[in-house]
Amino acid sequence: MFEFCADPSTLDTAPWFACYLTNGVHMLFYQSFLTVLLLLAITAPVALAFGFVGAAASRSHILPISWMGKLYTSMVRGVPDIAFFLFFVIALDQALEWVNHQIQCPDWDEPIRQGANFVVCQAAKIPLSSAPQWVHEVYNYFIAVFTFSIVFGAFAANVLFGAMRAVPRAQLETAEAYGMTRRQTFWRILVPQMWIYALPGLSNLWMILIKATPLLFLLGVEDIVYWARELGGSRTSQYAYPHPDWRLWYFLALLVFYLGFTRVSEVVLARITRRLSHGQATAGGEAQGKAAA
């Protein structure tokens, strides 16, 4: 990074740290913060969409659809996150490769499962083993994001299902009295009003999602926890920057990051609550109305 970093062993404390904190592995460490933020940025809207579909399906008057919605929420909510993560990621990956194998290599005569081995033809590998490493990493990452979305979508579905039922019945009856169809009532009356009831539950989920991001580490994605453990471990002079066990400081930095991030989230969520309460028939909304009058 800096020119004076050529021989770190000769440096004083301040320039040594300047070089140490900007070396290649630390750059990867800083990038991993972006990995985590990107996970949140993708997972939150996708999980909300899954939740919305799940909740709408659970409310459906067509029985099979309602069953599917309820099965999704109760099944995913009932399985421990870690067990679901470990199982689903492997199962999804193998399922994709199995399907691809049937398409690409129909003449293959060996069994795919040979004891512990899962062997598909080379052309069916996802991604192909000749693909560069970043493709493998991106693929793993999106499998992880997809899994996060399914898990948090199930919780969101339950929150939204409750919120839909919390919208005062009188509102919906009035809509029907005006001659709105079920669909119109749903989109024009129910959905715009349910968010204020959903928000406490959704904000909880958001906080849990932030704190669940270290699960990425479990799925083999090199996230901030992986790098904190990796960089904090003691290093001999085999490395350019030898140091004793500094894991305490690295994990302290993570703690500060997560605390800061959840604090910012709290402030933003409080603002959204104020905004959504506006004109609602809730205690918060009425208090706002009185203050304005």
């Binding site: 290649g24 592995v25 490395y239």
Partner: peptide
């Protein structure tokens, strides 16, 4: 085919991730 070589990257001097992240 490209051969993917799997290693741990945490066992110097056998294999480790150096300061450049390699």
């Amino acid at each position: 085919r490209t051969i993917r070589m799997g290693t741990e990257g945490a066992y110097p001097p056998y294999n480790f991730i150096n300061d450049d992240g390699e």
